[in-house]
Design a protein around this nucleic acid. Structure first.
Length: 701
DNA sequence: AAAACTCCTCTTTTT
DNA sequence: GAGGAGTTTT
């Protein structure tokens, strides 16, 4: 019987979670407790048993990769063309809705999706006008993004007026940014969510359409949703309240991106009738791994208590080692891997090395290479973010949406066509006057009499190129890409490797419609297409989320790295660092190795390191401590104990200072230490200034 | 407008 | 210690 296939190999709680199909459900799913399985099966169950059309089950995952896997697994249970499935990330689902409905918000349906790069470049561009110290753009980008994740519009933000001058400026920059996006007919990632919410809130008819289309909602990784995403789900579930969310508060590691664990807490408030099911049986790790990771996470205050257990006996304890420096650490990892491999205990592909920051990969790579161990680094840089790829895609985007100023700026002079800063500035000023996009402005300027012939030649040629491309009917994205490459001459003078990348892009576009291809490029990431490889995986703790490996190494367990030094001032962030460690530990199925180094080279300076505070929480009985003093002669018997902590700067963010000529100001930013300390100060009289403390003759007030 | 020089920064990251 | 971005120089 079909029922057997769907439910038989599950435990009680899992089964309950699947069978609860009326009304809201919160599944608190511990690490490795089979939550993906629950969602997949539930989808199949709803389709088969409850006779819901597959296209009426709105399912959200955290990554495209997860979405694809899920679709595939669903396909094993039900037969239906999964093209019609609404299974995807929040962003791709919203994109899909907006492509149909966005006219209601005054955008054109051919809008461009801006990625982080585009977003940063637009914001920087805006900051230049705003007299905001440009180095602060990262902070501005992230704050704007945070605001959007919380559905706070520029108007809301400005109206609060909780700003002294900086927030005021931020608010205006945000307003301008939204304005520019709209003018470019572009949406950033946050817009995809925020505008979908706006769409549904402001258009009851459209809301109705989608609430009746989607009869059931499934949300994975609920602990990492932000407020806007939660609001979206509330809207879509209004009326029927058929919504299941699955998550683990202990694995919430994306606060810095706006994720809000309290969504899990609010869920029970917002849906008072919600059934709550805990999945506590772990199918992944051995008991000793669970014991060790469990005692680490237990130290967090704000969490829902749970007790993971497993039937898997442990034959090996978690292993911790303290070594001299990062090279020794890397060597030891490599040697241990080789050892396991030679003893036939694992294949290289079964091993992952996890670290807090990407730079840590370097030493590990060197050591693995030295031992001839195959490996691959899973890094944050996606294929689509490479310069040459983004350039070519920008042509494509400009062709499909000529208002897209960011893309235009990017490619107007690459390959070099002699259009330089002054020309671009001229166009920008004119565009501002006209209130038109840069492309349209350029067309207008070409018609006017008053411009130099050289300007007309160069700009004219570019405009002509784009128009020609736009007017050629291209059947597929590949056709258009070929056309772009040929006509633009982009490949001339390009390095071989980059040419290869472009060619790869073209071939990946074969048979795919232009629109679909652009969406895919915008909404997909590095890890999505990463196929299984044979070697050891090197990745950050963050990107390890959702994965599992028989053997896991976590390196760099030191104060300042994990927890990361920037998180050390805030208890909340320390808790998140701890969760990050927990996520890492629980990736391991059979074997877990931890290590820290006594000294480490950080940006050309060698620093003394202390073992991470989190290690203290692992009970001795759960962990074997190997203090292998390595092959090398022990360096100097360093008396470095006394002065590891650099004296904290006199000036901290937020304090007030007095400058001999500029008067009183507030410190906004602080970098460097000792004599090299530089601070950014917002003066009442002259605004933001960057100063070297040594020179400026400041007085603390 | 391109080349040379200088300065600055130096998490995590999906979409 | 490196790489990127912005600025100045030619």
């Amino acid at each position: 019987m079909a029922k057997d296939v769907l439910l038989d190999d599950l435990n009680n709680e899992q089964r309950l979670a699947i069978q609860h199909c009326d009304g809201p459900l919160l599944v608190l799913a511990g690490a490795g407790s089979g939550k993906t399985r629950v969602i997949t099966r539930k989808f199949a169950y709803l389709a088969k048993k409850k006779k819901l059309p597959p296209a009426s089950i709105f399912t959200v995952t955290f990554t495209n990769k997860a979405a694809n896997e899920m679709k595939q697994r669903i396909g094993q249970h039900i037969t239906a063309d999964n093209k019609g499935f609404w299974v995807g990330t929040f962003h791709s689902q919203c994109n899909r809705i907006l492509r149909r409905e966005i006219a209601a918000l005054g955008y054109k349906p051919d809008f461009t999706v801006y990625d982080d790069d585009d977003q940063s470049s637009l914001i920087r561009h805006i900051l230049r006008e705003f007299n905001i110290y440009e180095a602060l753009f990262k902070g501005v980008v992230s704050r704007i993004s945070m605001l959007k994740a919380q559905l706070i519009t520029p108007e809301d933000f400005l109206a609060r007026g909780d700003g002294f001058s900086f927030d005021e400026k931020l608010g205006r920059a945000y307003l301008k940014y939204q304005h520019e996006l709209k003018r470019a007919n572009a949406l950033d990632f946050d817009d995809l969510i925020m505008l979908t919410v706006k769409l549904l809130e402001e258009n009851p008819k459209i809301l109705k359409k989608y609430t009746s289309l989607f009869e059931y909602l499934l949300v994975d990784e609920f602990q990492d949703t932000n407020r806007a995403q939660y609001r979206l789900m509330q809207l879509l579930s209004s009326g029927h309240n058929n919504i299941s969310v699955v998550g683990d508060d202990d694995q919430s590691i994306y606060y810095f991106r706006g994720a809000d664990v309290s969504n899990i807490l609010n869920f029970e408030k917002d849906y008072p009738k919600a059934k709550v099911i805990k999945l506590e049986q772990n199918y992944r790790s051995t008991q000793s791994i669970l014991d060790a990771s469990g005692s680490v996470i237990a130290q967090n205050k704000d969490r829902k208590a749970k007790q993971l257990w497993t039937e898997r006996r442990s034959d090996e304890k978690v292993c911790y080692s303290l070594v001299q420096n990062e090279d020794e650490e890397a060597k030891q990892v490599a040697r241990s891997i080789k050892d396991l491999y030679l003893k036939g205990k694992c294949e290289y592909r079964d091993v992952a090395v996890l670290y807090r920051t990407n730079i840590q990969a370097r030493a590990i790579e060197d050591a693995l290479r030295a031992e001839h161990i195959p490996y691959h680094v899973i890094s944050g840089i996606s294929f689509y973010q490479r310069k040459e790829i983004k350039d070519i895609l920008s042509y494509m985007r400009l062709v499909t949406n000529s208002d897209d100023n960011v893309s235009l700026r990017r490619i107007i002079n690459s390959p070099p066509r002699g259009i330089g800063v002054s020309t671009i500035t001229k166009v920008e000023q004119e565009a501002k006057k006209q209130g038109a996009s840069m492309f349209r402005t350029m067309k207008l300027m070409l018609k006017s009499q008053s411009l130099a012939a050289s300007f007309k030649d160069k700009v004219g040629e570019f405009v002509h190129l784009i128009e020609k491309l736009a007017h050629t009917p291209h059947k597929t994205a590949a056709d258009m890409l070929k056309d772009i490459v040929e006509r633009s001459g982009y490949l001339n003078d390009l390095e071989d490797e980059r040419i290869q990348n472009v060619l790869e892009l073209v071939s990946s576009a074969e048979g795919i419609p232009v629109r679909e291809f652009l969406d895919r490029a915008a909404l997909s990431s590095a890890t999505d297409h990463l196929q299984e490889s044979k070697g050891v995986s090197l990745l950050t703790l963050h990107s390890a989320k959702g994965l599992e490996f028989p053997t896991v190494f976590i390196v760099g367990l030191e104060e300042g790295i994990l927890p990361y030094f920037k998180a050390m001032d805030s208890p909340r962030e320390i808790q998140e660092e701890r969760r990050l460690f927990y996520v890492g530990m629980t990736r391991a199925k059979d074997r877990l190795f931890l290590s820290s180094a006594r000294r480490r080279r950080l940006y050309s300076k060698i620093q003394d390191q202390e073992p991470s505070r989190f290690l203290k929480d692992i009970r001795p009985k759960d962990c074997e401590r190997v203090e292998r003093t390595c092959s090398q002669p022990v360096a100097v018997a360093a008396p470095a104990k006394a002065l590891p902590k650099a004296p904290k700067s006199l000036y901290i963010v937020g304090c007030r200072v007095k400058h001999p000529s500029w008067g009183i100001g507030v410190v906004r930013d602080c970098s460097g230490e000792g004599e090299d300390t530089k601070i950014t100060v917002n003066f009442q009289s002259v605004g933001l200034k960057r100063l070297a403390v040594k020179m400026a003759n400041l007085e603390k007030v």
